[in-house]
């Protein structure tokens, strides 16, 4: 019946439906109800709009554009490079942190000492060398060393970039709304 209302039945199908409707009072009543609804819907008017709709839309667009960050085209290699730096520095920081926590300094010192003694180096010399190595390693793993600074900087840049993007987008939407 719905297809008949939309004129989408073939002439044979329409004839078959109308033939059925002529004989079936139950379907005929239903068909009348659907026709009534169809007529009411077709007669329903379009709602008029206030005159300042277009300027208001354009104002919202301008507001959005005024607040949004200017579109800067960043080359693909720069995005890839920055991402790689952030990932590598973060990974390096995790590795160094893991070493410092799980692989104690003393273990490194003993391993180094044993290796030097096996190689025939005098105990006093081996001791001095491994102690120097140990202090260098401790220095390297400290948060103020270059490795620590690079990795923390990478993370900071990443977090700051995401935060800035989020805040500006949200503020722009709020202002435009």
């Amino acid at each position: 019946m719905s297809l008949h209302l939309d004129g989408l039945l073939s002439s044979e199908e329409s004839a078959a439906l109308e033939n059925h409707l002529a004989r079936c009072s139950t379907c005929w009543e239903h068909w009348q109800a659907l026709q009534h609804i169809d007529r009411r819907l077709r007669e329903a008017p379009l709602v008029a709009l206030s005159g300042d709709f277009v300027p208001e839309v354009m104002r919202r667009i301008s507001l959005y554009q005024g607040f949004a960050l200017p579109a800067v085209r960043v080359p693909g290699w720069a995005i890839l490079g920055a991402s790689a730096l952030a990932v590598v520095s973060s990974a390096a920081w995790v590795v160094f942190a893991a070493i410092s926590v799980y692989w104690q300094m003393d273990t490194v010192w003993y391993l180094g000492l044993s290796a030097l003694k096996s190689a025939g180096v005098a105990l006093a010399v081996a001791d001095a060398l491994t102690l120097t190595g140990r202090s260098l390693l401790s220095e390297l793993l400290a948060p103020t060393t270059v490795a620590g600074l690079v990795s923390l900087s990478g993370l900071s840049v990443l977090v700051l970039g995401l935060w800035l993007r989020l805040v500006t987008r949200y503020s722009a939407w709020r202002r435009a709304a």
Binding site: M1, L3, A16, H20, C24, T26, C27, H30
Partner: peptide
């Protein structure tokens, strides 16, 4: 539920016989 029956016929073999 007769409407559904009629519509099935509309979409199916196109034959309307009885409700």
């Amino acid at each position: 539920g007769l409407v559904q029956a009629v519509n099935r016929k509309e979409e199916g073999d196109g034959v309307l016989s009885e409700c």
